[in-house]
């Protein structure tokens, strides 16, 4: 069965969805990603959906769910590269994914993640002092 590859880049994970997701594949991805976050102790994950052209409410909710799951595991998730048509569909479906951070492309996503994690490290050391 086809799986969505989860790649490790430095301390982050990179998931690139280059095909249209069906429900089974989406559930599998949730499974694989949560496992990968745990095994690699990843601090951030970038989900690139630039290849995704069709979404329904299930996939939309799954994106939100994955972000929440990652956050619970202390891993910051950023969804990048959403196509205009996908964005319009999600808005029309009433899914604004308000808890999900987004970026234009992987580059920007990496920048956000680094800045976010640097900020959090600082906070932590402040607390200790």
């Amino acid at each position: 069965m086809y799986r969505i590859p989860i790649l490790r880049v430095e301390e982050f994970l990179l998931v690139s969805i280059q095909t249209d997701l069906d429900d089974a594949l989406a559930v599998k991805l949730q499974d694989d990603l949560t496992t990968a976050i745990a095994t690699h102790h990843a601090r951030g994950v970038i989900i690139d959906i630039s290849g995704l052209e069709i979404v329904d409410s299930f996939i939309g909710r799954m994106l939100a769910d994955i972000s929440t799951m990652a956050r619970i595991q202390d891993c910051h998730a950023i969804v990048v590269g959403m196509q205009p048509a996908v964005a319009i569909t999600l808005v029309e479906l009433g899914l604004s994914l308000s808890g999900v951070q987004t970026a234009l492309h992987i580059d920007q996503g990496m920048r956000f993640l680094r800045r976010f994690l640097a900020g959090r490290d600082e906070e932590a050391s402040d607390e200790r002092e």
Partner: peptide, 12 residues
């Protein structure tokens, strides 16, 4: 608002 939300979803 819809336009703003859609743009945000794309990362803008």
């Amino acid at each position: 608002l819809k336009t703003v939300t859609a743009a945000r979803l794309m990362g803008a």
